[in-house]
Amino acid sequence: MLATEMYKARFVLASLASFVLLAVGYFLLIDRLAIVDTNLGVSYRQFLLQASDDIPKRIIVESGSNAIHSIDAQAIEQHFGRLTIIVSDNAGYPLRHKIERLANHLKADDTLILPLEWLQYRADDKLPADYVSSVLDERGSNAFYYRELSWPERIRFVYQSVPFKLGLQAAFRLNALQSHNPHIAAARQDSLSRFEGQIRQSARGSQLIEKGAELNNLARGLKCDYYLFGLWEFPPISATFIENLQRLAEVRDASGAKIFFAWPAVTARDDNECYQIYEQQIRDYASSIQSLVEAQGFSFLGTPEQSRFDHQCMLDTYYHVRATCAAIRTRQLISALQTQGLESGLRLDQRSLQESFLSHLRQ
């Protein structure tokens, strides 16, 4: 009887040990072999963030492509005499990962601006499939997001968000090993050439375009409010955003950085129809968001209406404005930052700044 009980106990312990070993092995397989890990990635905006860590009094803008097309970083930099960089990329990418990245780089004299697209206020914690795929692709397009995560967050990403088949495919391709993945060397060479050109142009992450491009299919098919908030019902504020807001407060307290929220720039397709269908719901929604944000000690720059533009400003989606309208939006942000008491920094030596970035590039 005793021998039987001991056998059962040993079997359970052996099974648990095997499970733990398999779990750890799978994580290491993904972490070490599936996800590219290089000092120089393929994102110029990520390079700017890393290469400027020793530069004081930065202004950093983080959100989606809305900020890339609606904020002139160079104009803000010239006005305040502070290095200004836009590290935004895609509105659908998880805010939690954006915050964790910033946590590794924000300093006490930095100022962070978050003109989040409306999507971030309703998004849940399920990561978009295209984002997960981009982290595990052979070029390591967004691998830097993963490498910026803490170990608990990495584990959560691997086990909650990476499909088993995708993970194994990336691992068996040996994505992370340069000797087996020619895309790494090719991507690095492309980045070296591309980054150097952007550095010499004093590019700061903005992409200001005046000539209208072809309309995005969704923008062509949906009215503005439906595009921004959904077609069937108006969204609630998600628990995920509230959790992200609390995490952002922790990052602010730990770093000492000043952090401001801003409303996204939106532009009409026909006349000035944005914020019209859901007019009252949007006002209530924005008020609720602002109350939550201010309860955590943050402030908003401006109002939603101040960042709304008519159809003459549309580039290719409701979130992308033409360069002339981006100039207006940028002046509004400068004024709002001045009202908040943001002080000017020392006059930037552009030549020294350029040499500093080029030095980081060559390391």
Rank of each mutant, 00 (worst) to 15 (best):
E138Q: 13
A326K: 09
L16G: 05
I71N: 03
F357H: 09
C313L: 03
A257D: 05
S18E: 00
Q46C: 12
E343S: 10
Y285L: 10
L177I: 03
Q306F: 01
N104F: 06
L48Q: 07
R188Q: 11
Q189F: 11
L346T: 15
D284P: 08
D53Y: 13
P304I: 00
P128M: 02
A3T: 15
V24C: 03
D124I: 12
L358Q: 01
I59R: 00
F229N: 04
F144E: 12
S179Y: 03
P236F: 11
G212S: 13
K223V: 13
Y319P: 03
Q46K: 12
S65R: 03
A17W: 07
S43C: 04
L33G: 00
A17S: 11
E210G: 07
G297V: 10
Q50V: 15
V42T: 13
R122K: 13
R269C: 06
D130H: 11
Y318D: 07
E214L: 14
C325V: 13
Y227W: 15
L13C: 12
D89M: 08
A213L: 12
F19K: 05
R347F: 01
F157W: 02
S359C: 00
A3Q: 11
G256T: 09
L114R: 12
E305S: 08
Y7T: 15
Q340M: 04
R252P: 10
A239F: 07
D284H: 11
A143I: 12
E273G: 14
Q350P: 02
G345R: 07
R188A: 09
G25F: 01
L2D: 15
D253N: 15
I237F: 13
R122M: 09
L292Q: 15
S134T: 01
Q78A: 10
I209S: 10
S141L: 08
Q160L: 07
A23L: 05
R329T: 02
L174I: 07
I76T: 03
D37N: 14
L21N: 03
D225I: 14
I199F: 02
R252C: 08
F172W: 12
D124E: 13
Q290F: 05
D109N: 12
L292C: 04
G140L: 10
T324W: 13
F261H: 04
L95W: 15
T84D: 01
A9D: 14
Q189E: 05
A326Q: 08
G140E: 07
R156Y: 14
L353I: 04
S70M: 07
L106T: 14
F261T: 05
Q78G: 06
A268F: 08
F234Q: 12
R32I: 09
V42W: 01
A103H: 05
Q46H: 14
A265L: 05
Y226Q: 15
V251D: 05
L49E: 06
H180F: 10
P264I: 02
D316E: 15
E355C: 00
F157E: 02
D89H: 08
L116A: 12
V24A: 06
K126L: 02
F357C: 01
Y131L: 02
Y275F: 13
Q281E: 14
L127N: 06
L48V: 07
R32G: 08
A34W: 09
R32T: 09
A257N: 05
S307K: 06
S238K: 11
G221H: 08
V61P: 02
A91F: 01
Y26A: 02
A295I: 02
G167K: 06
G41C: 04
F300E: 14
H79E: 06
